[in-house]
Amino acid sequence: MIRFDSVGLHYGPTPSGQVGAEVLRDVTFAVPAGEFRWLLGPSGAGKTSMLRLMYLAVRPTRGRLGLMGVPIHEARRRDLPALRRRIGVVFQDFRLLPHLTAFDNVALPLRLAGRPEGQLRADVTEMLRWVGLARRIEARPAELSGGEQQRVAIARAVITRPALLLADEPTGNLDDEQAQRLMQLFNEMNRLGTTVIVATHNDALVQRHPAPALVLSHGRLIEDR
């Protein structure tokens, strides 16, 4: 499912023409399809950069990256959108579209995938009900609390039943009960075959849900356990 082979990443060039420092160096690991991994490490270790590589927001500047059998480092640009539609992402900052309602935000991936309107209504409504937002279906993000926005972001990430689910601090704005429900959802999706990668600082959450982890430090993978 995911294969990193001596992957390096640096951002840039900046407007002044300078190439940024390498944020990931010689990262090598593989995650078979249908597995769960925690992605751990202190702030600035490179967790978000690694997730950005996995959800195809950037391409590696060095090494080889394979996702779902596609060599990303050499894939044609026009081949990537179809791959992105098979990846669900829960962002730390939610990344909801502010002018759309909760319903339209969650329905967006289905619409981009070409799902007929008549078929997506029930799925979107059910998903919003599951995350406890059945009464906020018409609310825009600005009218929702941080926790509610995060639940909309989660609903949007899983609505297409993606092959790969990536989450960056998904429980940061949730109370314990909501975090527990979210982990149940991730585990359920994982049980159904979705590969799940969750980046977090929440040690208690990791201890409650023991699973293999990728540990990063200063842009290097220091542990694959």
Partner: peptide
Amino acid sequence: IVHGLGATD
């Protein structure tokens, strides 16, 4: 955001 969700050019 829409590009990241898989929208084509």
